[in-house]
Design a protein around this nucleic acid. Structure first.
Ligand SMILES: [Mn+2]
Ligand SMILES: [Mn+2]
Ligand SMILES: [Mn+2]
Ligand SMILES: [Mn+2]
Lengths: 215, 215
DNA sequence: AATTATTTTTAGACAAATCTAAAAATATAT
DNA sequence: ATATATTTTTAGATTTGTCTAAAAATAATT
């Protein structure tokens, strides 16, 4: 598999797991910042290799084979992210781009040894689950901070958006995975929250609250 | 730079540092297992980028810029090899192929952090020197076991050939970097050596002795 | 139901990296 | 010095992944 094929597969996997249904040509093109015509070309190739089921104009879904391969790429991506943060002490907002490269390194033995070296982590630095070597994903029942009850204690377990901008904002507000949240007030007009973060009062907009997973 | 450009640059660097003079098209083609015509095409590209000095039919040499870039690729290759052996406990004969992939990962910050994480090693698992971040290489005065005096003690500090076959042979004979050698006898007919390896008597052919660096 | 808008696919072009076959330059041998 | 052999370069083709522009299919509106 080429880097390009792997990137398409991973993108289709990510869109599927949030939408659930068939993935459209345009949705792929948008996420990959490429043209729809390029996507169509690649879909034919992936269909030939039986990694996706593709019917003209109908969108695509991954086959079992394609889904497994996609999960293996995600596994590599997230394990490398753990390595970069835990071992090399990269800040969590700088690891994604490097992991985009490392996820294409081909060696099953390497990734399994890396997994052991890291202590078989189940989550990456952004709280996303790491598939195990057979593709199994431990899913946690997570809530968005925006949907949470007042005056109950929650722990931050992940971020929905892991853009550098958002992660740097969280650093500035001293919010990280493991922080405790108690929502004290919800402003009716714009759903802004008044939250105690590790007992420190912080005002959090609805947009921010919509991108923080808690438990 | 593309992977292909990096591989050509590295190959030219390696041939230069053993031969010293201009590198011929055919020498590159042979080492890269490709055709001379493909090499010519790439040489034009590298010359356009001022990474090599190229005159038709005259062979090539690296510019300062090209030489520095080549050393940075070698640096990455060897640091990753150290990581694989020291941290992930790969056997030393399995790391080269994986490092061939990892050497193309682009991030200066990554490689410098990796360097620190590994304790700034000066040599890779095969005894080859690791250029520092400015391209400086600490060179050691090493001898081949085949050229050594009788009844003097030497230490194994590197291998010239690092093919899997040779490294596995050394594992079988329990020879590794740091082993002590005392050559007791040299057979005149074929230069076979009788060597005490860590006080254990071993017969070593001339071909083997020609691929072991000692000090 | 017919028209308009959007999405998707096709057709054809292009850059990168490779190849084969042929031509040109250089090196070797008689 | 001439002929022969080797090395290197060019010419032209191929594969992969991309693009633009146009055509075809599907979806949304009137
Ligand atoms: Mn990521
Ligand atoms: Mn992540
Ligand atoms: Mn190597
Ligand atoms: Mn090495």
């Amino acid at each position: 598999m080429t880097f390009s094929e792997e990137n398409y597969l991973k993108t289709i996997y990510h869109i599927t797991s949030s939408s659930g249904t068939e993935v459209s040509t345009n949705a792929i093109a948008e996420k990959m910042e490429t043209k729809a015509s390029s996507v169509t070309d690649m879909l034919k190739k992936l269909a030939d290799k039986e990694l996706i089921v593709y019917q003209k104009y109908k969108g695509v879904i991954l086959t079992d084979k394609g889904s497994h391969l996609a999960k293996m790429i995600v596994r590599k991506h997230r394990l490398w992210e753990v390595f970069l943060v835990d071992k090399l002490h990269f800040p969590w907002d700088e690891v994604h781009d490097i992991a985009e490269q490392l996820e294409h390194i081909k060696s099953e033995k390497l990734i399994n040894k890396l997994d052991d070296f890291l202590g078989n982590p189940t989550e990456d630095p952004h709280g996303d689950p790491i598939p195990d070597s057979s593709g199994l994903i431990k899913k946690s029942n997570k809530l968005l901070l925006s949907e949470v009850e007042l005056n109950k204690e929650y722990r931050c377990i992940g971020v929905k958006d892991s853009s550098s901008d958002f992660l740097k904002y969280l650093d500035k507000q001293k919010i990280s995975l493991g922080s405790t949240f108690v929502v004290k007030e919800r402003e009716n007009f714009d759903d802004t929250l008044l939250v105690e973060v590790n007992s420190r009062k912080v005002t959090i907009s609805n947009k921010i609250a919509n991108n923080l997973f808690v438990h």
